[in-house]
């Protein structure tokens, strides 16, 4: 009995030390006066330019898709053969309910994040896997990719993303996800969606990727192999996608793993503003998103091959995303512009 108490105390102490160490290193970096001044100046300059852009977008109202165009896109989705007479597919996706949500999605997409999307027409018709890097603490990268396919691809497609089980079990949010076509992340669900000729969005880094601390930004974590095995099994093309910009939307100083465990959540990031404004600190900063769609990649082979064989194929996808990400980072003018 007392043994476990001591064990737990020791573990807690070790966790505390690692959290403290991480915080100290990050604060030390920022406490150099020179570095702090240039960073502050740069952020202030970019931020004022970005807010002017946001203001002019809002004032002109030019960010909204015209109603008839939106109607045409929704009608296209409603034409899917996977829908029952009750307006949903077997996963609970209700295209008719997307209409009322589009203004909010589009505000995030065109105003808040001012997303720049490259080569979206590379997303093919029919079944495909969309594979992207994952970042930003909350999955706004998924929202942006989904909105781009809905509003900027011709004809529109609904990205069906594989969502963390935790999220789809929540009241309201889980139901909302389902109606918007987002699906509990299970291999079986993915297989069925592909059989239904859907475009399935997978973040192979999963929770590891999205909740990584700010100091690890633009360093992709290890990719899971599940998507590649499904691609080999279902013979689907893979579209690599790089998202640049999302890393800076919410700054995660450190992951509070014990708290996450306590609340049964995938992660519990501590952000700089959290002591002041609490959970609202998880809301994204108005960073600029750049989304790069790569050429579809085809793979062949045995879906049940050894990990080592599959890992080689996964590495090719990861490298394709890395290349687009590097290019995007080199080309971007700033975090907010």
């Amino acid at each position: 009995m007392s043994g476990t108490v001591v064990d737990n105390l020791q573990r807690l102490q070790a966790v505390g030390q690692s959290i403290g160490h991480n915080l100290a290193t990050q604060l030390a970096q920022w406490s150099e006066p020179e570095r702090r001044r240039t960073l502050a100046e740069r952020v202030a300059r970019e931020f004022s330019e970005a807010s002017q852009e946001v203001a002019s977008l809002i004032l002109s109202g030019s960010w909204r898709t015209p109603d008839d165009e939106l109607e045409r896109r929704i009608t296209h989705l409603l034409g899917s053969k996977n829908l029952s007479p009750h307006g949903t597919d077997a996963f609970g996706f209700a295209p008719g309910e997307v209409r009322s949500v589009v203004p909010y999605l589009e505000f995030l997409y065109r105003v808040w994040f001012r997303a720049e999307v490259h080569d979206i027409q590379r997303v093919p018709e029919g079944r495909c896997l969309l594979i992207a890097n994952h970042s930003g603490q909350l999955p706004f990268d998924g929202v942006v990719i989904g909105t781009s396919l809905l509003l900027d691809r011709d004809p529109p497609r609904m990205a069906r993303s594989m969502v963390e089980k935790f999220a789809t079990s929540l009241p309201f949010f889980g139901t909302f996800c389902n109606r918007m076509g987002q699906v509990t992340g299970l291999p079986d669900n993915c297989r069925r969606l592909l059989e239904n000729e859907e475009a399935v969005l997978v973040f192979p880094e999963g929770a590891r990727g999205i909740s990584k601390p700010y100091s690890h930004r633009y360093r992709m974590t290890a990719f899971g192999h599940g998507f590649m095995r499904l691609a080999l099994e279902s013979h689907v093309p893979i579209v690599p996608i790089a998202v640049v910009g999302a890393e800076e939307q919410t700054i995660n100083l450190v992951n509070l793993a014990p708290l996450a465990k306590l609340l049964n959540m995938p992660s519990a990031p501590l952000t700089p503003l959290m002591p002041l404004i609490g959970p609202a600190a998880m809301l994204p900063a108005p960073v600029k998103y750049h989304v790069y769609f790569g050429e579809p990649m085809e793979f062949s082979g045995d879906a049940n091959d050894d990990d080592a064989v599959v890992a080689g194929k996964v590495a090719k996808v990861r490298a394709a995303i890395q290349a687009m990400m590097d290019k995007g980072l080199a080309e971007r003018r700033g975090i907010f512009i």
């Binding site: 077997a90 996963f91 609970g92 089980k165 789809t168 079990s169 889980g174 699906v183 509990t184 299970l186 079986d188 669900n189 069925r192």
Partner: peptide, 9 residues
Amino acid sequence: QSDNPAYIS
């Protein structure tokens, strides 16, 4: 279950 697949075989 919250994590049931949409098609239980």
